[in-house]
Write a protein that binds this DNA or RNA. Structure first.
Length: 430
RNA sequence: GCAGAGAUGGCGGAGUGGUCGAACGCGCACGACUCGAAAUCGUGUUACGUGGGAACACGUACGGAGGUUCGAAUCCUCUUCUCUGCGCCA
C-alpha cells in the first residue's frame, strides 16, 4: 500500500510504475482514487462542520436543562435531529468511499526500485550471480522420490491414505537430515545476530486479512472449523502480525528475527501439486528471517539477508544462483526481490529455494507498523523485509541430488554432521 | 470450560450521561536558579484526519464491533484479551 499523498502529488509516477509492472488494467484506479479522495475530503469537511454544530448545540441543551428551560431545549433537540439526519447520509457515503478507496489502494502496487529490470514475468528475471560450480554428475541422477525411497526415507503411499496427496512421511536418517538442516540453519542465523523465535502456528482472520489479499487467502490458507483461526502459510504471517498496529520504540530498531514454523498451504490452482514428490506440498517446514528497520537501513539489510541464504547453501556444498526479479514478477507489496535458486544436477537447471524481499513501507502502512522518529518526534512507518533461510523438504531435493554418490549413498557435509550423530553419509537400504 | 473482576495517554491511575482529550502522580522536553549538577520552581508533552504558509481551528478515537440518546469513557448487546477462583490437560 503506497502513500495516498504520492497519488495526490505525483500521479504520473504511480502510473509509470504500474506500466513498468505490465498492469495497465490498473491505470484507471489512479484517477478513481483521486476522485474518491477529493469527494471524501469534501464530505469530511461538511461532516466535521455538522458534527461541530451538533456538539455545540448538544452542550446548549445541557445548559438549558440546568436552567429548567425545557421547551426551548426540546426545540434545539429537533434542530440537532435534523442535522444528524444529514450526518448519517454523509457518513454512509464516506463509509462506502472508504471501502472502495481501501480496495483500490491495496491493488495499486508499491513503487519498485529504480534498478529493477523491466520484464513481463518470471521468464524475464535476470541472473545476478552464481556460487559454487554447477557440476553435472558422471552418472544419471534419479528423480528425488526414487533417491528417497532407496534411502528408506519416504512413505508417500501411507501419507496419501492418512492425509491425501501433497503430504509425506519422512523416516529414519532422511527425517533426521531434515531436522538437522533446520537446526543448523537456526544456529547459523543466531550466529549472525538474529533472535530466534517460535511463533504461533495459527492466526486470526484480522491478521490474515492484514498480511494478504482475499484471493491469496482463498488460494493458500487452511481455516480451522468453528474457530476464527487459520493455519499459517509461512511464519512471516505471525511474525509480522506481531507488530500490527504498534509504535515501536526507535531504540529497538533494527529488529532482526529468525523464526521456525511448519507452513500449510492449499496451493489451490498451483502447478505441480499433482506431481509425485515433495517439490510442491501442503505442509513443509521453514526457517525464515524478517527485519523491521528504519527506512534508510532497508537497502543494507536486503543485501545482508539474501547473502546469508547464499552463504548457508554454499556452506552445505550446494551450488546456487541469485536471480533478480523483474518488474512483472514482483508481488504488489514489493520494492525489490531476489530469488535464491539451487542447482539440480538431474534437471540440469536451477530451481527456487528461497526469496528475499524488501517491502519498504508498503506492508507497514497496511498493517500500521510504526516507530517514533527521535529526530522529528513523529511516528513514521518502518520498513519490513523477509527472506527464506531454508525450507525443507523442498531444499532436500537439491541436497540429495547434489550429494548423491554413484553407489547410491548421500554425502553429509561437515557442517551438518554434529546434528547427524557424526554420520558422514546416508546409506541406501535397498 | 465455568464464575467473578477488569481493559483509560510513554507508564501508574481518577473519572459511572453534558464544559472530559481526560484530575493527580511518574516519565520526558524546554526554561529559571547554579561555576556545573542534584534538589526546587515554571512551561510544555496522545494519535490520526481535514483546512491553513504558520500560529491555530474543527473533527474522530478511552481494548474491538454494533446499539440507545439531543449528547456516551460513563448505559445496553456481542466480541477479544488480562487477573482471581474452580475444573480440565500435554
Amino acid at each position: 500500500m503506497i502513500d495516498i499523498n504520492l497519488i495526490r502529488e505525483n500521479p504520473d509516477l504511480v502510473r509509470e510504475n504500474i506500466k513498468k509492472k505490465f498492469q495497465d488494467k490498473k491505470l484507471p484506479l489512479v484517477d478513481e482514487v483521486i476522485a474518491l479522495d477529493s469527494e471524501k475530503r469534501a464530505l469530511q469537511r461538511e461532516g466535521d462542520e455538522r458534527r461541530a454544530k451538533r456538539n455545540s448545540l448538544s452542550k446548549s441543551i445541557g445548559a438549558l436543562m440546568k436552567e429548567g428551560k425545557k421547551a426551548e431545549a426540546e426545540e434545539v433537540k429537533l434542530e440537532v435531529k435534523e442535522n444528524n439526519d444529514r450526518i448519517a447520509v454523509i457518513e454512509a457515503r464516506a463509509a462506502e468511499i472508504d471501502v472502495q478507496l481501501k480496495k483500490d489502494m491495496m491493488s495499486i502496487p508499491n513503487i519498485i526500485a529504480a534498478d529493477v529490470p523491466v520484464g513481463k514475468d518470471d521468464s524475464e528475471n535476470v541472473q545476478w550471480n552464481t556460487y559454487l560450480e554447477a557440476a553435472e554428475k558422471p552418472f544419471e541422477v534419479p528423480y528425488h522420490v526414487d533417491i528417497l525411497e532407496r534411502l528408506g526415507g519416504i512413505d508417500l503411499d501411507s501419507a496419501r491414505r492418512t492425509s491425501g496427496n501433497g503430504f509425506y512421511y519422512l523416516t529414519g536418517d532422511v527425517a533426521r537430515l531434515h531436522s538437522a538442516v533446520l537446526t543448523y540453519a537456526r544456529d547459523f542465523m543466531i550466529d549472525k545476530g538474529f533472535t530466534y523465535v517460535i511463533p504461533p502456528f495459527m492466526i486470526r482472520s484480522d491478521v490474515v486479512s492484514g498480511v494478504m489479499s482475499f484471493e491469496e487467502m482463498d488460494g493458500m490458507m487452511y481455516k480451522i472449523e468453528g474457530e476464527d483461526l487459520y493455519l499459517i502459510g509461512t511464519s512471516e504471517h505471525s511474525m509480522i502480525g506481531r507488530f500490527m498496529n504498534t509504535v515501536i520504540d526507535e531504540s529497538r530498531l533494527p529488529i532482526t528475527l529468525t523464526s521456525y514454523s511448519p507452513c500449510f498451504r492449499k496451493e489451490k490452482g498451483a502447478h505441480g501439486i499433482e506431481e509425485r514428490g515433495i517439490y510442491r506440498i501442503h505442509q513443509f517446514e521453514k526457517q525464515e528471517m524478517i527485519v523491521v528497520c528504519r527506512p534508510e537501513e532497508s537497502d543494507y539489510w536486503y543485501e545482508k539477508m539474501w547473502s546469508y541464504t547464499v552463504e548457508l547453501f554454499v556452506s552445505m556444498g550446494i551450488p546456487v544462483r541469485t536471480l533478480v526479479c523483474c518488474s512483472g514478477d514482483l508481488a504488489d507489496l514489493k520494492y525489490r526481490s531476489l530469488d535464491v535458486e539451487a542447482w539440480s544436477p538431474r534437471q540440469k537447471k536451477y530451481f527456487e529455494v528461497g526469496s528475499c524481499s524488501n517491502l519498504t513501507d508498503a506492508q507497514a502502512r497496511r498493517l500500521g507498523i510504526r516507530f517514533k522518529n527521535s529526530k522529528t518526534g513523529k511516528n513514521e512507518f518502518a520498513h519490513t523485509l523477509n527472506n527464506t533461510v531454508v525450507a525443507p523438504p523442498r531444499m532436500l531435493i537439491a541436497f540429495l541430488e547434489n550429494h548423491l554418490q554413484e553407489d547410491g549413498s548421500v554425502f553429509i557435509p561437515e557442517v551438518l554432521r554434529k546434528y547427524m550423530g557424526g554420520k558422514e553419509k546416508i546409506i541406501p537400504v535397498k
